[in-house]
Design a protein around this nucleic acid. Structure first.
Lengths: 281, 281
DNA sequence: CTGCCGCCATACCTGTCCGGTATCGGCCTC
DNA sequence: GAGGCCGATACCGGACAGGTATGGCGGCAG
């Protein structure tokens, strides 16, 4: 199986529509149809059922989508890491990716401590939306990542835990619910006039629901102050809060573990040094 | 990058010789030369230095070999698992791989216990040479594996430990060293008339050294009885020993952890059931 | 020092197959 | 029942993979 075929398949599987997938791939529809049919013949597997509305994945197709995505990421990682080996041959550097906005305190401490190491190399920090860090590590855009259990998928990485913290509910100051010292997540969800915001999926789309679409944390905090929404955050985020907000402890929210993660078999001394430094914090 | 290019590159990197690699790939030498040159151009990286003896990997080449192997295994896994999804659609089954010869007691217990489960599926057992289990899990030839720390590379798998045991030295009965109750690995290595056997690499070749080449465990045990070699084994292997052998405890050999491992994101209920059963043993 | 050998690169040709346009056939909708 | 949407088929041209023949270059033996 060639990566080209795999890319075609993933596009069709994601769009559930040959025409749109062809569009996305920058090619015409017929060759894509043919490529999919040929892939099915070669694999001896029906990957899609053709419906009047488009293409729906079969069980075999779901398997190929799941496994194919990690395979494609691995190929991309091989390519990118090879390129970077050349680019950074003279000036070694590593790419660290982390969630934009959060854990800035931890990051600052880590970067400072690492920069003081004798064999430190340059660290390029790549901040991005929540949930994008693990994919970046998987496809080679990053060399190390700060990830968060249980939100990120850590499978396939070597990791080292850095901290564990509980989550709290952020409310508008003066809201009746602030009278409570603690509550359950179910209770927090069902406060009638404060729907929790919706986080974007990896593709940028949002789930259905009443809450506001969360794009920028400070803007959402402003919405909280205005009494339009509430927010569940790790405790450490409290440090950055300004006036107009109240905090209620959550009894049954899962604790958040912050970890540093890197691809196995990494030979980078920079990555090793950064991990060692992180472990000493 | 296409998987074809990657396969070509890996062949050349392993053979360090374009002609032999072309041979292995069943093609002529010139197109392979050209494909490698083209790959280097597209990656913007010198992958090999051309020597009068053949091709030697550069640093970038080593990166691509390491990462490319796991990428190729992932692509193969995607293909194989998709095929198996179809084949075993009517009669679900899973492939369990384990080291031939060892842990037979554990395996028997596990398979018996699992077969007694209400939702058990058929288990095809795939016995193979030591060290081959992890690759089989990586490229989709197996769905679950019994692996051994620290010998197998567990990276990228989900695992659950089943047992931990120390290693012991197996000697010919009556050998002077049997007077000792325990010794270090270094001492065991330096018993003058008993060189330890050599284990094969993954490709079937053997490291240099004085000891006999280990192919079949029972044959090597015969060699031990004849006073020609000694052997380091996990304790549990003692159960299968016959007469003519003596056991000395090793003080500093690393303990061997037997684990059950499976690929992350596995959706197989059979794998889940087997893992659950193993955890209860 | 020279000729030969081993190894990779280049030149050139051929066939395959990828991708494009045009069009068909089925199904749902209005 | 007509039109629209969607995937499949037919057919064509060009790019490129792979084959054979040969060149270039360094090492080594005589």
């Amino acid at each position: 199986m060639e990566t080209r075929e795999l890319r075609y398949f993933v596009a069709v599987a994601e769009e559930q529509h040959v025409g749109r997938a062809a569009d996305r791939l920058g090619m015409a529809q017929p060759p894509l149809s043919r490529a999919i049919a040929q892939l099915e013949r070669r694999l001896g597997a029906e990957l899609f059922v053709r419906t009047p509305r488009g293409m729906a994945l079969t069980t075999a197709g779901e398997t190929l989508l799941r496994e194919g995505r990690v395979a494609l990421a691995a190929v991309e990682a091989a390519e990118r890491r090879t390129r970077r080996t050349v680019e950074s041959a003279d000036r070694p550097s590593i790419v660290l990716t982390a969630k934009a906005g959060a854990s800035s305190e931890l990051m600052a401490k880590l970067l400072d401590a690492y920069a003081a190491e004798p064999d430190a190399v340059a660290v390029d920090v790549l901040l991005s939306a929540p949930g994008h860090q693990a994919p970046m590590l998987r496809d080679g855009r990053a060399d190390v990542a700060i990830l968060h259990q249980p939100f990120d998928d850590l499978s396939g990485f070597d990791t080292e835990a850095l901290s564990v913290e509980d989550q709290v509910l952020i409310l508008p100051a003066g809201h009746p619910a602030t009278a409570r010292h603690s509550m359950s997540v179910a209770e927090a969800r069902s406060i009638p006039d404060l729907p929790l915001p919706r986080w974007p999926h990896l593709d940028g789309s949002y789930p259905d629901g009443p809450g506001p679409e969360l794009r920028d944390l400070t803007q959402v905090l402003q919405l909280v102050r205005l009494g339009r929404t509430a927010l569940v955050l790790p405790e450490s985020a409290q440090a950055n809060l300004r006036d107009g907000l109240a905090v209620v402890h959550l009894t049954d929210a899962p604790p958040v573990t912050t970890v540093i993660a890197w691809p196995p078999h990494s030979t980078s001394t920079g990555v090793a040094g950064l991990v060692r430094t992180a472990g000493r914090l």
